[in-house]
Amino acid sequence: MRAVSGSESLSVTTVPDPTTGPGEVIIDVAAAGVNRADLMQRQGKYPPPPGASDILGLEVSGRIAEIGAEVTGWSVGDEVCALLAGGGYAERVAVPAPQVLPVPAGVDLVSAAALPEVACTVMSNVILTGGLAAGDLFLVHGGSSGIGTHAIQVAHAIGARVATTARTEAKRDRCRELGADIVIDYTAEDFADIVTAEGGAEVILDLLGAKYLERNVDALGTGGRLVIIGMQGGIKAELNIAKLLTKRAAVFGTTLRARPVDGPDGKGEIVAATHRHTWPLIESGQVMPIVDRVFSLDDVEAAHAHLDGGDAIGKVLLSVGADTDRDG
């Protein structure tokens, strides 16, 4: 599934099967996650990193079909999900073994495709970078998104207080069900005023970037950490350094896709931390994949339109090799 350019650029085509390099496995794909990064890539705004497949798709679930040299701990037939730099909208994909996770107990194979990108994003940015801990106030924007629904659950499970923003009543209700303590209608309320009245946030996870920078800094408490992981609201804004210094606060900008597999802060390290800390929360039922709808791969245009329309709550998935089209 390659994107050439523009909103009508997706096409299904035949390409050679991937081959396993040292340290890689081949996965027969059951399902792939649809992420906003895929929409940006098809528009030419988010090219894959050097060496990555130009086929869309940053996460999959499926079964291991082949194991390359130097890979240990996996067997052919294992049900897994995986974080990718690209290539997920396909029947088969080659993945570095450190980026592969077992399907958590109690999660079906298709729904497992909703986990790798959001779980690793939240682990990397909220826990490892942001240092969220029990008793902290955590603000996540876009609480009904794939990342938002997962972040709310993880933060609630570790004992943090959770504030979030959401546009519609249905989305706000779902955020409350998932564990959000403070749910803000950002179309009618000022999130910074509300969070400041609660003492300010220790950690803020922001996908919008420039648009929210000033108000995010206002919403930080003393020693707070703002972690910016998206640019949907623009790339340039003024930062009031005096306000940041007064609060002894920090602003982090991070990305996951372009990181190396190995080494400090690499994807392998993040995946391992996710397996250690988040998988037990999933298997105990404290955190679950939130799937809005599953489309077949042939309906990828409809899947992208659904995600881009802004009505999805949780993840949108593509079922690969099956005629599946269901609501979550």
Rank of each mutant, 00 (worst) to 15 (best):
G6R: 11
L10T: 14
V12D: 09
P22I: 04
G23K: 00
I27C: 00
D28Y: 03
A30V: 09
R36L: 03
D38W: 00
L39T: 04
G44P: 05
K45Q: 15
G51H: 08
G62S: 10
A69T: 13
A69V: 09
Y89P: 00
Y89R: 12
A97H: 06
P104C: 07
P104D: 00
A112W: 00
A119H: 07
V126I: 09
A133E: 11
D136V: 05
H141S: 01
G148K: 09
A157R: 12
I158F: 02
A160C: 10
R161G: 05
V162F: 09
A163N: 08
T168Y: 07
R176P: 07
T187E: 14
A188M: 12
F191V: 15
A197S: 15
D206Q: 13
R215S: 15
A219E: 00
L220E: 01
G223Q: 08
G230K: 07
M231H: 08
K236T: 15
A237Y: 08
N240Q: 10
A242M: 11
K243A: 15
L244E: 08
A249W: 01
V251G: 03
L256G: 02
R257E: 06
G266H: 10
G268M: 05
A272W: 08
D292N: 15
F295H: 05
L297S: 02
D298F: 03
D299R: 15
A302H: 03
L307W: 01
L307C: 01
G309F: 06
G309Y: 08
V316A: 02
L317S: 12
L318P: 01
S319D: 13
V320Y: 10
V320H: 09
T324I: 13
D325S: 15
D325P: 04
